[in-house]
Design a protein around this nucleic acid. Structure first.
Lengths: 149, 149
DNA sequence: GAAAATTAAATCGTTTACAAATTAATCGTT
DNA sequence: AACGATTAATTTGTAAACGATTTAATTTTC
């Protein structure tokens, strides 16, 4: 039995659960939009990272999207099979793999604007509200990253 | 090449990426704390849902944590193997499975308070800031859920 | 009251995440 | 130059997520 005086942590009072469930909801909004392009949300993040600058190592991508090589290696192989990126071992340092966009991967940027506005619409946020919330989350993420070694 | 006049969507400007990466960072903070109890973060969410009220169906848990039976069935089986919950098919309606806490699952609530305060500390947020951010995310999640059918 | 529709879980296949271990290349120190 | 330490990526194993399908039970409709 549960009373108002006990200390049961309520799901709906948890910031962590709000973040977690909102992240899943966001993925569900993106999924059908990205499916038309044949990519998943994490793949789309990698594309965004590469549109900004490509010809970068797996680790460099990892530091941009906060994922490690154990996640990225298979993901990048799938993107390579799909013809979106190229993976070439660096001649200067044979440990590194340099990832670059194919023309198909680069062309997808043209569709990105439409997707972004669809999602902004689904959020029902103004651009200002979205930016303000983003800034708070980035600050929180920075604090959390500090406490992870 | 990237200039200030092009329309490259920048990762660091995206609300969705801020949510996604903060959610992963939050999981990384929780992981070692929950590992001591032998549970994962989604399992911890299910425990929280059940501490509030147990003897509920898989769907009821799903509606509380925003996950479907395809995710929950295997997760609950793992929790059952770990001795945290019991799964019994309902006699009244044989389609349903009623999930309840074992004493071990219920006892874990005692540790939850410590974990919550560790995580709040890692966020570097005051309780008021955490609540305010949570409320904004819940509002966003509600908007996103509306646009998912 | 039998057939059709709906509902609840479970199953299947694919794709993340990530700890831990492995492989291979480079660096640093002597 | 040589060998131990470090680094980059990959591999392995486990656990989510979830669309799509399946199975079985209940409800609705005729």
């Amino acid at each position: 039995m549960n009373t108002k005086t006990d200390k049961t942590p309520l799901l709906d009072e948890q910031l962590c659960f709000a973040i977690y469930s909102t992240s899943l909801a966001m993925s569900k909004v993106y999924r059908p939009l990205l499916a038309k392009l044949g990519v998943t949300y994490p793949q789309y993040l990698v594309l965004m990272a590469l549109w900004n600058q490509d010809q970068v190592t797996v680790s460099e991508i990892g530091s941009r999207v906060f994922l490690d090589s154990a996640t990225l290696t298979p993901l990048l192989k799938r993107m390579e099979s799909a013809g979106l990126v190229e993976r070439v071992r660096s001649a200067r340092d044979e440990r590194q793999v340099i990832v670059s966009l194919t023309p198909a991967g680069r062309d997808m940027q043209k569709e990105a604007g439409k997707i972004m506005s669809s999602v902004l619409c689904a959020t029902q946020c103004s651009k200002e509200e979205a930016i303000a919330l983003k800034d708070q989350l980035v600050a929180l993420r920075n604090n959390l990253e500090k406490s992870i070694q």
